[in-house]
Amino acid sequence: MNGKVAIVTGAGSGIGRAAAIRLAAEGARVGLINKTEKDVQETRQMIEDAGGEALAFTADISVPAEYKQALEQITRQWGQIDALFANAGILGVVGPIEAIPDDEWDTTMTNNVKGAFTSVKYIIPYLKQQGKGSIALTSSISGTRVFSQQGFAAYSTSKASIAAFGQMAAFELAPYNIRVNIVAPGTIETKIQGTGNQMPEMKDMKVKKVEYPDGTVPLPEGNGTSDQVASVVLFLLSDDSAHVSGSIIYVDGSESLFVG
């Protein structure tokens, strides 16, 4: 990633932070975008302490004006943008479909789907200017391979939408030498659980549990880590994946094959 500028949204924790740190370690200058000032500044400090370069911005990617301003400042500083990891998102409302408030559904869709759309839409001109580029979006096994999570209708729908959007973008942007791929993590230890709103009606839902003897991830190591997802993001944003576009890469230790 030497000489490249990469943007990471949701860079304040979890997969976004791990990807930003990994990209910087491999030579990229990284533009960090996150809703929470404290978290994104911590990521910037970690990168700089390790000898990397980073700029940190507090912005809501579902608000185009905030995101566009961050991109403008990044290009003013570094003169280019080569790659995007559109990772920001929330778990959102968790509950029975008939009990989900309309505004809670809208909040999940706005943060996840509109956020991904905004992230990609406004970075395209910068990538076209470079004559090439790479985009990776964070989807999930939820809504693409797994449909057995009780109460996850909103989250899974948003993540399925991101996967579809990414594939449509890959086809549309291919003539401009811009690649788009989708990362679909399984159970990863991150802070996203803290962004959810579990409804009290969940206790009344009928649940048929599927249990693996040692959890739901067949690989002996169990749940995945943000660093493992970051390795895949690095591959997709680098020239090592030059002929990979429109792909959904599952990073789940084959969990989705078991619980789908």
Rank of each mutant, 00 (worst) to 15 (best):
Q73R: 15
M46F: 03
W78H: 09
T9P: 00
G89K: 06
I100V: 15
R22E: 11
Q45C: 08
L84V: 15
Q69F: 05
L32F: 05
Q45H: 10
K68Q: 15
G51E: 02
P64C: 12
N34E: 15
G16I: 09
V8C: 06
A70S: 14
K4M: 13
A11R: 00
G51N: 05
G31Y: 02
R17A: 13
A86D: 04
G79M: 11
A28N: 08
Y67T: 09
A56D: 01
S62D: 09
A88K: 09
I15M: 13
T36W: 07
N87M: 02
G3P: 09
E66Y: 08
A86M: 04
G3S: 11
K35T: 13
A59Y: 06
T43H: 03
L71I: 12
Q80V: 10
I21M: 10
F85P: 04
A86H: 04
Q73S: 13
G10H: 03
G79D: 11
G95L: 07
W78M: 05
A24R: 09
N87A: 05
I15H: 00
R44S: 06
A88H: 06
D39I: 00
W78A: 10
I61F: 07
N34R: 00
T43A: 03
T43R: 00
G92C: 07
K68M: 14
A88W: 04
S62P: 05
G89C: 04
I61Q: 13
A86P: 07
I97L: 15
A83M: 07
T43I: 01
L91P: 01
A18R: 07
R29K: 15
D49G: 14
Q80H: 14
G10M: 03
